[in-house]
Nucleic acid binder design. Structure first.
Lengths: 227, 227
DNA sequence: GAGATAATGTGTAAATTACACACAAAATAA
DNA sequence: TTATTTTGTGTGTAATTTACACATTATCTC
């Protein structure tokens, strides 16, 4: 008779003002009560693992995401949970924190967006799950136009620039970057808007979901080498 | 109390004579007794999932692989196993079938390499696991020099060509392909050998593991668009 | 309101890489 | 000895990537 428990955890990244954030909860019970950990919990017997992450995420943080990508299954360390053998399937989510209300719900004491650069010590092996998520995020940004999940519906081009600079942790050539991104024709030009602060006003754009799906269907690759 | 069982399955691809093969076992017990399925089984309470696949693979087929890559975790269909809730972590392995002795062991009635194009009906949802593996294989071949796991230690250049043609299912320009591959300097030239059949003899090559690791450490990308 | 400062928007030339393309050389088979 | 099979090789063109600098439009300050 097997005694392995199956759990799910969500690595949810947010972006704002040139910085990445991670959604964490302060755990209510268990060996890491009062520690910050990733939202997650046990899978129920009759629910899909995909549904399980969504449910746990909502129960603990009130956040509802419709897209979570399977990241990796952590089950090589037999003692990753002090209470017994637990294998966890980690999922990756990306959002604009501005779109969400977060609120500690039933199963968490507190919910918080932490600056990724300034994470507290996380319980269990959750730091390594975050590392894996970040690795995936950094890889994805080179071949998928993920920026748009992390930004608001409408955004200035400079915000997209900042996002790329932040995730890749490099400077980028604004002219070449713009040329590259615009060449995909994924952006709808919404016209000039008064900019947030000082300086010349800039154009706002919206991500063209339809065009994106069209290109994906054609097997198009969004390679962005130069960032 | 949770009643989910955790299993592992191995998608092991082989390559020979311009064709891909899949390693399957004929199941001894259970609802799919006498059906062909992927090697795999339940994870033990005190073993890592990585060890579990290796063990199951060996127990059922006598095949020992030192590298298996985690592929995907299948647990969204609650009824994928008629006996109850089973979530399975699938792994991907690549080998030259010539290197291995396969032999039905303790837990299998029979072991066999099937032509991938001519698979029998597989038990459970194993066909979709295979599909996922194939998808990964096809993606990997564009950014990792995986060919070498699938070939013998020493190989003619034309064998590598054939492998690429087979996996991508496309013709390739021999001159450009050779130029590209040789530019990585991953191949050690072993000199001219009498070719297998008729025709001009060709050079044999060996994969330079050391150089590969060096390049990976530098963050080099092995992009092979043109195949 | 003039000048400093901040942010956005834009084009061109050089270098590199991808792609298309054809024939000679060395072996075996007939 | 001739035909067939397989391997090995180079060059020109197109496309893409990269490097690089300044004018425009706004706000802030004095």
């Amino acid at each position: 008779m097997q005694h392995i428990k199956l759990a799910v955890d969500a690595v949810v990244f947010g972006y704002q003002n040139e910085a990445l954030y991670l959604l964490c909860v302060k755990q209510k019970y268990g060996p890491f009560a009062n520690s910050w950990v990733l939202p997650g919990g046990l899978v129920k017997d009759n629910e899909s693992i995909q549904d399980a992450v969504k449910r746990e995420l909502e129960e603990e943080t009130s956040v509802e995401l419709d897209y979570l990508e399977q990241l990796y299954t952590f089950g090589d360390d037999v003692e990753r949970d002090p209470r017994g053998r637990v294998v966890t399937v980690a999922y990756l989510g990306l959002v604009d924190p501005g779109r969400l209300h977060i609120q500690a719900d039933t199963d968490a004491l507190e919910v918080k967006w932490f600056l990724l650069k300034d994470l507290p010590e996380l319980g269990y092996d959750h730091q390594s799950i975050v590392d894996k998520g970040l690795e995936r995020l950094r890889a994805k940004i080179h071949y998928e136009p993920i920026g748009f999940d992390l930004l608001g519906k409408e955004f200035f081009f400079s915000e997209l620039e900042g996002l790329y600079r932040t995730i890749t942790n490099r400077e980028l050539d604004r002219r070449n970057f713009r040329k590259k991104i615009l060449s995909f024709e994924l952006l709808e030009d919404l016209g000039v808007f008064p900019s947030n602060g000082r300086g010349r006003p800039g154009k706002k754009y919206r991500f063209r979901e339809d065009r994106y799906k069209e290109l994906v269907a054609k097997g198009f690759h969004f390679e962005i080498k130069y960032v």
